[in-house]
Design a protein around this nucleic acid. Structure first.
Lengths: 272, 272
DNA sequence: CGTTTGCTTGACAGCATTCAACGTTGGTGG
DNA sequence: CCACCAACGTTGAATGCTGTCAAGCAAACG
């Protein structure tokens, strides 16, 4: 195990010191005009997510070069899709503000949430394999992404060694994350799944300057259940039980982690 | 859905016309001297897995250049590890002959099989993210791999556009595959999981020139169960039930798919 | 040929699903 | 301002799938 957060080693994401707070609701509050927002080009070097995003660890000179890699920004309203299964793959997207879910589905309608993405995380990696997207990416709140045209990225990776390595790392990390989810889905009971989910979510939020104990969930019980391989009723019941046990405080979508160590302990339970 | 094999679209691997048969047991039968085998350098251009491996789709001239990318071959005996959690990451490995499993584990001993790898498939992608491997890769039979030093790969990717794209595709495909497994683990019942597993396995074997209906399983019921999120008893019982229903013929590790369409139908079942 | 490992099958229990009813919240329009 | 509605969340009761424990069998190995 290489990660200090032992219990969630397989499940952990980005492991960085907290960066300057991001105004999560900046774009929500003002209900901005999409057209205008899209016209603004943002420099990576002045983006407060640069320590969590693609250009992590790049030198200042490299950072300058990367500016023209990132295309326009794009606004996605809550409930809308950034891309859908079957859409031609052209670009990757870095989340600037907001919150997404990705999901795959069978032709008969069942679907599985494969991840939740927040600021600094990359969307669209699935599309490279077949030149078409193989999952849907849906905004769970009004969101804003940086569009990274893939052909342009390929060019730049050839010139910038550090960025090439960084990009490979991001793809590799996604694979490792997926393995962690497989472990969760394959061998944990409901309580442990929910605990792992909350620990992971709060950790990632903490890395972005948020509280680390209090969350306002952006997704429904059904979406959590789909991600964790549980029914929405089971998720609700599990929240209630963890609250009774004094590990959480739950009020609808507001969740406060009271006993982080206690949740951690649940992950190591023997069954199922 | 882009794949013709609709039911297993999320779960399918490589989708190529069958290539020339590979002598699966060539190395098993003769019990070769490992030292000698390792000394042999194999040219990708003369490898019968080239249409399923990293250099897929490369021009002949590119193929020539890739030769010196691949380092020595390495023999891994049945039960031994190609790499383990925590090992420093130096290389990727392409399976030449044999069969592997990869697994992640929690500190308290539980583990989860994350995949089974056969000829032409890449191992070690997990290691890029943290410069250490995050899973174990165990040979399920005496196996032989081509070692691809990662620093060397990085160099060559910068020179060969096609190979760069190909490598990204392979990583992306792994992500898509993992999403398929998550769908399976999150929303399918035991019968459907086993059906999906067998359909996937036989399809991949078929793409390598094997029967497509008959398999000799290289893994135990416990390993199948770990992969599918089931207990070994459930796997065994499910095999028996599918046999009663006339979909399979099972005799220990020999499995014959009798009714492929019937198995396919199981995947689309409504619950659980 | 005995031992070990892996596979099968049965009985039973338990956790999660299913079905159902009710409560809460937020938005809309009268 | 309030009523109403729709979406979401909570809780209860009952069913059932899968896990657990146990025994017996088959195959592989030395």
């Amino acid at each position: 195990m290489t990660s200090p957060a032992s219990g969630t080693a397989q499940f952990s994401e980005i492991d960085l010191p907290p960066s300057p707070p991001v105004s999560w609701h900046a774009i929500l509050g003002g209900s901005p005009a999409p057209a205008r927002a899209d016209a603004i080009k943002v420099a990576c070097s002045s983006c407060n997510l640069r320590e969590l995003c693609l250009p992590v660890g790049l030198s200042d000179s490299d950072l300058g070069q990367i500016e023209n890699l990132v295309g326009l920004r794009r606004t996605v309203r809550r409930g809308e899709a950034l891309f859908r299964v079957g859409d031609p793959f052209t670009s990757l997207y870095a989340v600037r503000t907001g919150f997404f879910k990705t999901r795959v589905s069978t032709e008969d309608g069942r679907d599985q949430v494969t991840g939740f993405q927040m600021g600094g995380e990359l969307l669209g990696l699935d599309g490279i394999s077949h030149d078409r997207h193989s999952c849907d990416a849906i905004a769970l709140e009004d969101s804003n992404v940086c569009q990274i045209p893939y052909p342009r990225l390929q060019e730049i990776l050839r010139e910038m060694t550090d960025l090439q390595h960084q990009f490979h790392k991001i793809m590799s990390r996604e694979i490792v994350r997926d393995h962690g989810v497989m472990l969760l889905l394959g061998s944990m009971r409901a309580e442990a799944r929910v605990a792992a989910f909350l620990l992971n979510l709060t950790q990632r939020l903490h890395a972005r300057g948020f509280s680390g104990t209090s969350v306002v969930l952006r997704m429904t019980r059904e979406e959590i259940g789909s991600y964790l391989g549980l029914q929405l009723e089971t998720v609700s019941r599990t929240f209630s039980r963890l609250q009774e046990d004094g590990l959480l405080e739950v009020k609808q979508r507001e969740v406060r982690v009271v006993d982080r160590a206690g949740l951690q302990r649940l992950l190591n339970e023997v069954p199922c």
